[in-house]
């Protein structure tokens, strides 16, 4: 086959003169993987990954022989979701390490270049202004998705070696979907952080603001919603079940304003095929249901609002960043 080497050659060699966008992405990726903050975050995530894998591997025999659990056949999903000994599952870790990762990669994307005088020099080159922003976003996402994908593939490979259980296609799909959702979740915080880096001149201000927003949503938001609801809600004893149900749904909807809630909902449903609903179910709805795992498509249907919400929130912040950056008078 004479065309084969040519094809492979094209695949692996950089083009003679790459576009400015590719050049910028290349540089940004290089900067990220050499930066101490990324190395720190990577170590943190790898450590939690190893920790949760260790716990789940030591519990795996017990979990997969649990016949009452409809998910017990999915060994690899169990590897990702089994918690124990006070060690939460991996996706719970990601729900609060993910934001930190996004913020770490984005909080000084624009303002550090502005302060060191390189932004002006970069803008004086024949590159489009929006390409700079896009390259920053794309490069960080590339790094994050490579990291998650390699972790998960390592987990699969390790699991295969240790347990010897072959993998179902549905499992692989679910795990890959989990990776995609995790990347989107980090992408949300990344776009928020980049937005703040355009808005604020000082890197410290934008980092603190981003961390403030993160803390608000992870710690205070649930407290506030619960407190407010406790104050407003009438005593459930005087309500009929339909009303109680409506109020419960309201609380859940309010909680889902927090991106971490959306992420946890989506990740849990994807990794635990037996989850049928994220809200309360009435007895009528449950009647006749056989506790069996859902298909991948059905699980995806359940979390589709969450996925859409996360992507939409990411896009909103990216669009806002875009607007702010394109309108910015770069002298000020």
């Amino acid at each position: 086959m004479p065309s084969m080497p040519v094809f492979i050659d094209k695949l692996f060699s950089a083009p003679e003169s790459p576009t400015p966008f590719r050049t910028m992405v290349r540089k940004e990726v290089g900067d990220h993987i050499r930066s101490w903050r990324f190395i720190t975050m990577l170590l943190l995530i790898v450590l939690t990954f190893i920790g949760s894998m260790y716990i789940s591997l030591s519990n795996i025999r017990k979990v997969v022989t649990e016949i009452n659990d409809p998910d017990h056949v999915y060994v690899y999903l169990k590897l990702l979701t089994t918690a124990g000994n006070g060690m939460p599952a991996f996706h719970i870790f990601i729900s609060f390490l993910g934001p930190l990762l996004g913020i770490a990669l984005g909080f000084d994307a624009i303002n550090s270049e502005q302060n060191s005088g390189t932004l002006m020099r970069l803008l004086a080159q024949p590159v489009y202004r929006d390409n700079i922003l896009l390259a920053k976003f794309y490069a960080a996402l590339l790094v994050v998705s490579t990291m998650f994908l390699s972790l998960v593939l390592l987990m699969i490979g390790g699991g295969l070696l240790i347990t010897g259980v072959s993998m179902e296609a549905a499992e692989l799909l679910r795990i890959l979907a989990f990776v995609v959702i995790s990347v989107v979740y980090v992408g949300f915080w990344l776009s928020l952080a980049i937005c703040l880096s355009v808005r604020f001149r000082h890197a410290a201000t934008s980092a603190l603001t981003a961390i403030g927003i993160w803390l608000f949503f992870t710690v205070f938001y649930q407290l506030i919603v619960n407190m407010l609801m406790a104050a407003i809600l009438p005593d459930p004893a005087y309500l009929d079940p339909a009303q109680v149900n409506a109020f419960n749904n309201l609380i859940l909807s309010l909680l889902r304003v927090a991106p971490s809630q959306l992420y946890t909902d989506a990740a849990t449903t994807l990794l635990m095929p037996s989850i049928r609903s994220l809200g309360p179910l009435s007895m009528e709805q449950m009647a006749g249901a056989i506790p069996a795992p859902l298909s991948f498509g059905n699980s995806l249907m359940i979390v589709w609002p969450q996925v859409t919400g996360l992507i939409a929130a990411t896009l909103v912040f990216f669009a806002l960043t875009y607007y702010l950056f394109m309108r910015k008078e770069i002298r000020h």
């Binding site: 400015p20 060191s116 020099r121």
Partner: peptide, 23 residues
């Protein structure tokens, strides 16, 4: 004018060169 402090002068120049599409 600022330069990327973590890069050498040559790397800084190379970056600019690449952005300008020089081989």
């Amino acid at each position: 004018a600022g330069f990327y402090d973590n890069l050498t002068a040559l790397e800084n120049l190379q970056y600019i060169g690449r952005l300008n599409g020089i081989g």
